[in-house]
Write a protein that binds this DNA or RNA. Structure first.
Lengths: 222, 222
DNA sequence: ACCTAAATATGAGATATCTCACATTATTTT
DNA sequence: AAAATAATGTGAGATATCTCATATTTAGGT
């Protein structure tokens, strides 16, 4: 991690102004943190020193289960808070957050800001909205995971994550995310190929029948 | 639903004071709603008129999937908000909320209060904490549902919901909640009996080996 | 360029879980 | 009390998914 200074810091603060999320002056406190791909923004179980606001890049949120399985819970994208649950609850067990690309976060030192943040209407209102969406997404994801077999959940995932009809995610990541074994993921992908929905080209898959793929996907309005 | 008045209303307002959750005067606006067992506090897909705060009773939160399966998402217990996501997001698709017992809710008319609520530091701070816990629980539940077979999830559920070593939940409800078929739920219960963890007595089950049952349960610290 | 760890691939056999059909109680409603 | 509805129980066969073993390929580090 790099704590950016001077010119670089100024650059990001001007490109992504966040003063409007707060009613007190944040500029004297905010830091800009730069993470390389693969770095951990928060290590699982470690209480973070900062409340982060992700502005560039993408990160994975992980949790290790007692049985050793690693669950990939969600992806943090621009405009997501990281560490907000820890800000609200000192007892919270932190999930691991690992960057997937170079990532830039605005960082507010919790020690210095906590009281002010938790008394700030503007910030709290924004945080409520963020948490509401998070809950809502989580709930949808949860109920889907129970109600549908992989065939449907994978179809949805492919539709959502493909670019230009090309699906190219890492299998290892996807099976953690969808909570199935690597083996089974490949079975279902192979099945999609057999059925003419996808076509395998080297390491990636081309969508050859989008409409049918969408039919299999879950379309619950959320 | 009954909108309680006078003595009855006064009774509940004095028994469960909530003025401390707000920094403006709530007493002139708050209503006390009484629901019979089985009534819907919110019908799925219908935007509610009130923000509710459950003070007595218990309710189930449901969502119907496109494939017709009904997912029992969570249980609302005393001190839970109901309708808070709708307060934050007008586009939110409401989950169904049905009471399991006679239930008393404090009810704030959204139309009249929304602006004031969303500008109230005390309320927002409380709501953030509530939403944070909700997210956190949902996340835990989600990742467990992916990482563990029914054997473990059911063991946990039994340990949590048994009273005096007696487990007595409705199978139909439990299988919606755990996202498995009725058939399979009974298989695993029968298995627990065979293995001496439970003993079936009429319609209920007595826990005969709590320590072993706890071993099967998921103990992830949350 | 070489080594190593991670990611991809595939087969075979075992389990977990589902669907459907059907019978038997409870619980509500009329 | 009869009828209707919801909840319980069980069998049999089909799928979905997992575990493990093992081989190959790719990407990162020195």
């Amino acid at each position: 991690m790099q704590n950016l200074q001077n010119e670089e810091k100024k650059y990001y603060l001007e490109l992504y102004p966040i003063q409007h999320l707060f009613s007190f002056d944040i500029m004297s406190l905010v830091e800009v943190h730069h993470f390389e791909r693969g770095e951990w923004i928060i290590k699982e179980g470690n209480f973070p020193q900062y409340l982060y606001f992700l502005i560039e890049g993408k990160a994975k949120v992980y949790m290790t289960q007692e049985n050793g399985k690693v669950a990939l819970i969600s992806f943090a994208q621009p405009n997501a808070f990281i560490g907000e649950l820890e800000l609200l609850d000192e007892e919270y067990y932190s999930k691991g957050v690992q960057t997937m690309t170079t990532t830039i976060c605005l960082a507010l030192p919790i020690l210095k800001c906590k009281e002010e943040l938790l008394s700030d209407v503007v910030f709290l209102r924004y945080l409520c909205t963020f948490l509401g969406n998070k809950t809502s997404l989580m709930t949808a994801q949860f109920s889907k995971s129970l109600a549908y077999p992989l065939e449907n959940r994978l179809a949805e995932f492919i539709v959502l994550s493909a670019h230009n009809n090309i699906y190219k995610e890492k299998h290892t990541e996807v099976c953690d995310y969808l909570g199935v074994s690597y083996r089974h993921l490949l079975y279902v992908l192979a099945q999609f190929c057999e059925q003419g929905l996808l076509e395998k080209r080297g390491r990636s898959y081309t969508i050859t029948n989008m409409s049918e793929l969408k039919k299999r996907a879950i379309t619950t309005s959320v």
